[in-house]
Amino acid sequence: MKMSYFPGCTLKNKAKDLDEYARKSAEVLGITLEEIENWQCCGGVFTTSKDEIATKLSSVRALMDAKSKEQPLVSVCSACHNVIKQTNHAMRNDSEFADKVNRYMSENEPYNGETEVLHYLEMLRDKVGFDSLKEKVVNPLKGKKIGAYYGCLLLRPNSVMAMDDPENPTIMEELIKAIGATPVVYGMRNECCGGYVSVESPELAKKKSDAVVANAKAQGADMIITACPLCRYNLIKNGADIPVVYFTELLAQALGVKEAENE
């Protein structure tokens, strides 16, 4: 199965691991991720204001590209996914916005949010299935107690993102189980780490990320996984004393494609 893929700027630079492991693991699971040609940065934040048009065009271009290939559009970075999904929702539901965008793009066929937008985790759950994933695991991560860190971007606003129960998500815990490890559920997993203000208010960012790590540890986690490069950066920078890794790294390890690449 082929799907369109939007890596985003962080996965092409600081988070190369997130990208590589995601592609290789997808191959093992029977999905080829085809990178959108000439994709442009999503901008990192979806501006909710209705009079912001230009900042959303890069997402629209990627969505149109996927539509032309009749493929779903997959991304791995929480921020890219959030921006693209919210833009798609606006194209589908905000006719004034969509009209302005379509006039500007002046393509033959208007775009009205037809593309299916998937986070990689949703691709695993809904297209591959965690049961089939489990069958492909060659190196189960037995004995690891892993706290999934969702943060904000994957889940909110739920009226648009609709990935999971925003207050009691399970998608990453299911993944952790499928790769043979034990999920650790902790209250702070869907609270904000303060990543956006790590420059503006470093003390606030530290306070928030300390609270996340402390809570995960108190519930017994010896590792945290995330899909967000900024969360990972912020948690590590503020002194997390357990490893904080991308979920794709563990997935690649369990599927046996991580070692292969290091040889």
Partner: peptide, 19 residues
């Protein structure tokens, strides 16, 4: 002054979008 070795691009683009 904002960046270090590990700063993800995401932080910079988001900060520009917000500020």
């Amino acid at each position: 002054a904002m960046v270090d070795e590990e700063t993800p691009q995401q932080l910079l683009v988001s900060a520009f979008r917000k500020y």
